[in-house]
């Protein structure tokens, strides 16, 4: 090709591109942090209206019940917030804004990875907020466990976010399909994670399904971490589940965005 001499080949740099996509995605969050509160509605409802029922029913002190319940609420933040984030991309696909970024000289994978990484910011901010709200009611978090627990949530969130974007890319302009699939998955996943009620009393088949639900492992790890049991086996399994989900999510998402047009 004679023209290659006067035009050097475009230098693909996925890491730099990912950084640019990530910083762009963070801008609305930084400009308007209050939007973070809106997606906290569901977890707050569960904390405010469901936790008191649990406390009343269990008969143990509030602090102890919250110790069990709040880690699940943190995972719920990721489930409801990050699980829905694909709709932002879907909306950008229907307006021309996604198309514009596809014409820009950005690596395709960065468009997905940058977005998925951005999810970490709201997850950390919202988790800290929930922890702060629960403290006056007797909830206590082990400081080191909290840091490791947030990291675990972040990894899990990147995976779930990537899957949500994958769903958006797959459903294209069919919003109803995105929400249909998302809602159909989210509630069984939530109930079968032992997030709201312990699964000890569940029938055998439910426990069998829960055993392969990565959410369940992350919830259990989160409980152990916030209680300061850093060396517990469930912590290890939680990390395995979160990392596996992140790998699967990013792999599927990158594949989907490479085919997107």
């Amino acid at each position: 090709m004679s023209s290659t001499t006067d035009h050097p080949a475009a230098q693909a740099n996925p890491a730099r591109d990912t950084w640019h996509v990530l910083t762009r995605e963070l801008k609305p969050v930084l400009r308007d942090p209050f939007t973070l509160i809106f997606s906290l509605v569901q977890p707050l409802v569960f904390l405010g209206l469901f936790a008191p029922l649990l406390i009343g029913q269990s008969g143990v002190p509030a602090g102890e019940t919250l110790q069990w319940f709040v880690p699940g609420v943190l995972v719920m933040i990721v489930l409801f917030g990050t699980g829905a984030t694909g709709s932002n991309l879907q909306y950008e696909m229907m307006t021309g804004s996604h198309e514009r970024t596809l014409v820009a000289p950005l690596s395709r994978s960065s468009l997905l990875v940058g977005r998925a990484l951005k999810e970490i910011a709201p997850i950390i901010a919202q988790s800290l907020l929930i922890v702060a709200i629960a403290m006056p009611f007797g909830f206590r978090a082990d400081p080191i466990g909290l840091v490791v627990g947030l990291a675990l949530l972040a990894v899990f969130g990147v995976g779930l976010g990537a899957l949500s974007y994958t769903l958006a890319l797959a459903t294209k302009d069919r919003e109803w399909l995105f929400w249909g699939v998302q809602q159909t998955l989210i509630f069984p996943l939530m109930i079968l994670s032992g997030m709201l009620l312990p699964l000890d009393v569940a029938p055998g088949w439910m426990r069998a399904v829960a055993a392969v639900n990565p959410l369940n492992w992350v919830v259990q790890a989160e409980r152990a971490l916030l209680a300061g049991e850093l060396g517990s086996m469930v912590v290890l399994w939680g990390w395995v589940a979160a990392l596996a989900l992140a790998c699967v999510g990013l792999w599927a998402g990158v594949r989907a965005i490479r085919r997107s047009s």
Partner: peptide
């Protein structure tokens, strides 16, 4: 990739992301 680096494109639909501010989009 070489083509993309050297062309500009204004599509028929809206290029700006709705949640972004105008100046931020230009900087990005």
């Amino acid at each position: 990739a070489d083509v993309r680096a050297r062309i500009g494109y204004v599509g028929q639909l809206t290029s700006g992301s709705f949640a972004q501010r105008v100046r931020d989009e230009l900087l990005s």
